[in-house]
Design a binder for these strands. Structure first.
Lengths: 253, 253
DNA sequence: CTACGGCCTCACGCAGCGTGAGGGTCAAGT
DNA sequence: ACTTGACCCTCACGCTGCGTGAGGCCGTAG
């Protein structure tokens, strides 16, 4: 029963961690070898290996090293509580990741759902994530923003198809008025603008006239928005933008 | 239509990000305000806000800032490919997290599953994650280790119940021999040790005699292992350890 | 005696900001 | 004209868990 000792590389090979990791664990006081040679070489004993095993177990569970240190150093420490907490954190993380995956899927659907859109079309007016960003700007990322995110997140694939269809329908009616030469200040145009506002309000987030106005400005200011809307006809973006403004002014009186 | 500009705090309020974040985005060239006052104040234009929106959209999707920079800077950039890649990464991350949650659950079950175990019992001989750490040490964390992890991960709740029962049964038979005064070098004891080895081999990972010997050493060396086994009776840990060694030597001949 | 492999100690790097420290700027109030 | 305050600026370290050299000593085989 010799008191066997191991040098860093031995321990590394045996445990599967890197030498650097052992150095690190030593540096942060998580696993300090019981002895050192006169030359400063780390010498790990069996007990150290056992401690390392425990550490690795907890590391697999995703506990931060600081917590691991507490758990393995103090037998009195409530490991169960630590694990329960860890479980909760992991669950939260898992949910976050799921949400992000759904969001990416939505974005991808928006990208390639209709025919062959290309890069720029990510800023397609139908992609909800875009609107979320809008909402963020208008709302300052408060509680209302969270609500909006919740709302759009709850939409199913079918919901999106319906929303897309309704939006498309409205845009076509708007384009028709524009093509017919109706001025954006005409009540008919203003009504359509109002319908547009309410549509956003229903599908995406509470949309005041002020908010709607900002949106309208962007429709003409940014080439990506504009080009996208102008798919419905040249000048449709500007027409809608003007109608939105007129509608907003009408509402003020 | 004044060319409105915003100062950092305005943008922060509107977009929901912090001022620090805007500084950061400026520093890394992700979002540099179009203008600065003579005093060095950042002045953001509408176009900057739009760019910020896009950035935030992609950030929500979890893309690293560097990628976001490429996507929003270069309209030619393949956003779809970036998103597909991102989706894959997220999926991998999600799976990882799920695995960790399962592992934590397994550990918790081991902790409180049987009656009222306390802290130290995390090193209960039945918790698979413990053995994974063992395995890691023996195998140097190679391909075999990965296989073992895969194997234990595939066990269902029922599987664990069964495994636990079988293990418990064997331990009781071992304890019975010990109590009957049978020496660990007795063929009966050695046979039980061999059964013990094969059980590990079946349930957890390929367990050679050498590996088994190491395990046996730990059963007596570490108080947590020992106490756990000694639940079956005083000296059971030492008995099993000795039997394992004897069995190993018998196998060598 | 000289390689050559193994060990050591710094110390920067990464991702995305949080959080002060220390110090100008600007519009309002006295 | 001067002083608040509210904002703005630029460093620059901190956090997580090591990876990855750089530069240099130790130990053993040839």
């Amino acid at each position: 029963m010799a008191a066997e000792t191991y040098k860093v590389k031995d321990v590394a090979r045996l445990s599967g961690v890197t030498v650097r990791t052992l150095h690190h664990y030593d540096a942060i006081g998580l696993l300090c070898p019981t002895r050192r040679t006169s030359a400063g070489y780390r010498l790990y004993a069996q007990a150290d290996l056992l401690r390392l095993q425990q550490i690795l177990v907890y590391r697999e569970l995703g506990l931060p090293l600081e917590k691991i240190k507490m758990v393995v150093s103090d037998p009195q420490f409530d490991a169960r509580a630590a694990l329960v907490e860890q479980r909760a954190q992991l669950a939260a993380k898992a949910e976050q990741t799921r949400d992000m995956i759904r969001a990416v899927d939505a974005a991808l659907r928006a990208l390639q759902g209709d025919e062959d859109m290309n890069t720029e079309d990510l800023f397609d007016g139908f992609d909800p994530k875009k609107y979320e960003a809008e909402v963020e700007q208008r709302w300052g990322g408060g509680a209302e923003y969270a609500e909006s995110v919740r709302r759009t997140k709850s939409y199913s694939k079918d919901d999106w198809v319906r929303i897309k269809a309704e939006t498309h329908d409205l845009m076509q009616r708007i384009a028709a008025q524009h093509e017919a030469g109706v001025p954006p200040t005409d009540p008919v145009a203003m009504d359509l603008a109002e319908e547009h506002r309410l549509q956003i309000d229903r599908f995406y987030y509470p949309c005041s006239h002020a908010m709607h106005g900002n949106l309208g400005q962007m429709y003409t200011a940014d080439v990506r928005f504009r080009d996208n809307l102008d798919e419905y006809g040249d000048g449709v973006a500007a027409f809608l933008s003007a109608a939105i403004e007129a509608n907003g002014q009408r509402a003020e009186r």
